[in-house]
Design a protein around this nucleic acid. Sequence first.
DNA 1: CTTTTCCATAGATACTTTCCTAATTAGGAA
DNA 2: TTCCTAATTAGGAAAGTATCTATGGAAAAG
Lengths: 108, 108
Amino acid sequence: MEKAFRALASTPRRRILNHLAGGPMTVGEIAEQFDMAMPSISKHLSVLHDAGLVHQQKRGQHIIYSIAADNLANNLYAFLTPFCPEARKLSAERKKAREGVPERSDDE
Amino acid sequence: MEKAFRALASTPRRRILNHLAGGPMTVGEIAEQFDMAMPSISKHLSVLHDAGLVHQQKRGQHIIYSIAADNLANNLYAFLTPFCPEARKLSAERKKAREGVPERSDDE
DNA sequence: CTTTTCCATAGATACTTTCCTAATTAGGAA
DNA sequence: TTCCTAATTAGGAAAGTATCTATGGAAAAG
């Protein structure tokens, strides 16, 4: 959770996540949208990946990044639970909703 | 929201929030629980307050801090909404739950 | 094999954060 | 006023972060 919060404490990284909400895309496609050198984007993506907030998938020459919405939500809900009981309820609801949905995601 | 995430990207600050979940308390009471000088605690609390995550209330010589659970939750839910629709639903539920509860909090 | 494309890593520099001790402000009591 | 306690502010050292340019390496194309 530590890593997740540190990763989210950066406007460029949150903007990258929002951009990724539109669907999986390559580093180059992401970099086009930001006024920042590609190595910087790459670094931000590696931070997000290290925090488990995005998935990585090699596809030939390209690397496709996609958002890890579940991990994102679970981290924040887990943090919120001590402060507001509703978070616990929603967390259970999310868990139930995922049952029966095998969805084996291909990370790395 | 920027301030909220930056404030939360610190283990000591998240621990302080968890401690505050037990109820309002003074800076000194908080500082007793942490192996850190009081000025450091004070600084962390000012960061949390600047981010709107805690309330401050002067009480004579003491300053009582308490958690601002609503702002905390609203920030995180607002961030999550683009990624998972359930967050929007819960956000509405929380809002509805607050209706009819005037609760004018005394900040500053 | 050579070139091009896509991305990551390395190194440099500037900036920010975190923590301490010491000093300061402010309130309450003698 | 004077003293004591509570909390913040100030100053500085050390560590971390962000960004750039330059370089490296793997996959596809020529």
